[in-house]
């Protein structure tokens, strides 16, 4: 499979935003976790995972999000997710992941409320 940019990172309102691109699958793991580790050091308290540019998420991709949430909790960081499709909001609810992250419909809402 072709490898493209899988995650981009930016800082907004003091929140580290991880923008997911394209496919969120086990192939994304290194890129996502490296981006998280690189940009979440120091005083970072809030992480937002933005799925607005994600085209496909499978269970391996969900596992990466669980790993990230697990690491963030060790650092007492709060994790939010935004811009999931209704289908993946249902999946996050189904597996119980929505109990561990703040869920927002839009990035604007997330950046205001996280």
């Amino acid at each position: 499979m072709e490898t493209k940019e899988m995650v981009t990172t930016e800082m907004k309102n003091g929140i580290v935003v991880l923008n997911m691109h394209g496919d969120v699958t086990p192939f994304s793991e290194k890129a996502v976790m490296d981006a998280y580790e690189k940009h979440s050091a120091g005083e970072t308290q809030k992480i937002l995972i933005n799925f607005s540019n994600a085209k496909y998420i499978n269970s391996g991709g969900i596992a990466i999000i669980i790993s990230l949430v697990s690491e963030a909790r060790k650092k007492n960081q709060k994790v939010g997710v935004c811009c999931l499709t209704p289908h993946f909001v249902k999946i996050f609810d189904m597996i119980g992941l929505s109990d561990y992250v703040e869920m927002y419909e839009t990035d604007v809402e997330a950046l205001q409320l996280l």
Binding site: S59, G60, I62, A63, I64, I66, S67, V69, S70, R73, I95, G96, L97, D99, Y100
Partner: peptide, 15 residues
């Protein structure tokens, strides 16, 4: 999910 979040189980296995 709790076991996975707490690092007691591998995070995959949802299929």
């Amino acid at each position: 999910i709790k076991e996975k979040i707490e690092g007691k189980e591998e995070t995959r296995g949802w299929g």
